Amino acid sequence: MIDIYGLKNCDTCRRAQKWAKGEGLDFRFHDLREHPIERASLEAWADAVGWSVLLNRRSTTWRNLDEDARTSLDETRALDLMVRHSALVKRPIFAFREKGVRRYGVGLDDALKGRLREAER
């Protein structure tokens, strides 16, 4: 089972779900606004992909933050912001098992698609 985390109104998240369905992958979608992500999960994602990869700097929420919040970032402060503002989490996030180990991926590039297909075999 693949877990996809994102926002239900996000076009990229919708494309990810459509792609997974078309591939016949077993997945469930978690809307980060309806069910806010716990810090422990964010920390696991950040350990796997890096907090700077996880931080969505293209969102309106990011642009609306005050200058101090945007410029004085480290991992702790970035994760604090993502806990408070789910739109600051880059999406979609995939959680899946690869050779028995829990793995994470961000976005929907061809390399990740291949890993997700393999994980479901």
Rank of each mutant, 00 (worst) to 15 (best):
S72T: 14
L108I: 05
H30V: 12
L73M: 15
R33F: 10
V101G: 03
E43A: 13
A111H: 06
Y104G: 01
A78H: 11
M82L: 06
L42I: 08
I93N: 02
I37M: 14
A111L: 01
A46K: 07
V106I: 11
D31P: 08
L88Y: 08
D110I: 01
W62L: 09
L81W: 15
L42F: 08
G100C: 10
W51G: 01
H30N: 09
F29Q: 00
P36S: 10
V89S: 03
S59M: 11
L65F: 15
N56Q: 05
D31I: 06
H85V: 06
F96H: 03
F27K: 04
W62I: 11
V53P: 03
R58L: 04
S41L: 14
D109C: 01
E38L: 11
S52K: 14
R58Q: 13
R28I: 05
A69P: 05
M82H: 09
R77S: 08
V83W: 05
L25V: 12
Y104H: 07
R28D: 04
E75W: 08
F96K: 01
D66T: 06
L42H: 07
R102V: 05
E98P: 02
T60Q: 13
R102E: 04
Y104M: 03
E43T: 15
V101T: 13
T60G: 07
F94M: 06
T60N: 13
K99P: 03
D47V: 02
R97E: 07
R91N: 03
R84W: 07
F29V: 03
D31E: 02
L88M: 06
P36R: 14
F94R: 07
S72G: 15
G50C: 04
L54Y: 05
W51D: 04
N56D: 05
L32Q: 12
W62P: 13
V53R: 07
K99H: 14
R33Q: 10
V106K: 00
S86W: 05
I37N: 03
L42D: 02
R57K: 15
D26P: 08
L65V: 12
R63A: 12
R91I: 05
N64S: 15
D68F: 15
A78E: 06
G50T: 08
L73G: 07
S59A: 15
T61F: 12
L112A: 04
F96L: 00
